[in-house]
């Protein structure tokens, strides 16, 4: 049982880290600032919640189950998703309004 949970932890932690890495590679290869803000959501929407879940499973294995920790996990996941999407909205709007250079391939642009 412990072995199974450890394997699950490994899958969640390494998988989450791989999502963060994919987001970094996408950031390296995309061509303008707005696309880089855009690809960040695969790190915050998948990567960090998976890592937090893996940490929680290991916490249960080592210290036992309690409800407070489960609530903390749910707050962390909801926080990562909601806060990062609200923050990305604000950042995307600010980047567009500050006249960040756009990829010339951006077509159609209905906000021009």
């Amino acid at each position: 049982m412990t072995l199974l949970l450890t394997i699950l932890t490994g899958v969640l932690c390494i998988g989450g880290a791989i999502f963060v890495l994919l987001s970094a590679i996408a950031m390296l290869r995309s061509r303008d600032g707005l696309s880089r803000i855009n690809v960040l959501s695969s790190a915050t929407g998948m990567g960090l919640p998976w890592i937090a879940t893996g940490v929680y499973i290991q916490h249960v294995v080592v210290h036992g189950f309690d409800v407070i920790t489960l609530i903390k996990l749910l707050v962390a996941i909801a926080g990562f998703i909601i806060m990062s999407s609200v923050a990305s909205n604000a950042l995307g709007r600010a980047a567009y309004r500050s006249g960040a250079p756009l990829d010339p391939a951006t077509d159609p642009n209905e906000l021009a």
């Binding site: 963060v20 880089r36 803000i37 960040l40 990062s84």
Partner: peptide, 15 residues
Amino acid sequence: DDASVAAVSDLVYFC
């Protein structure tokens, strides 16, 4: 450019 720096700073924070 500023937008890239902001995006990368977020990424480094989460890392």
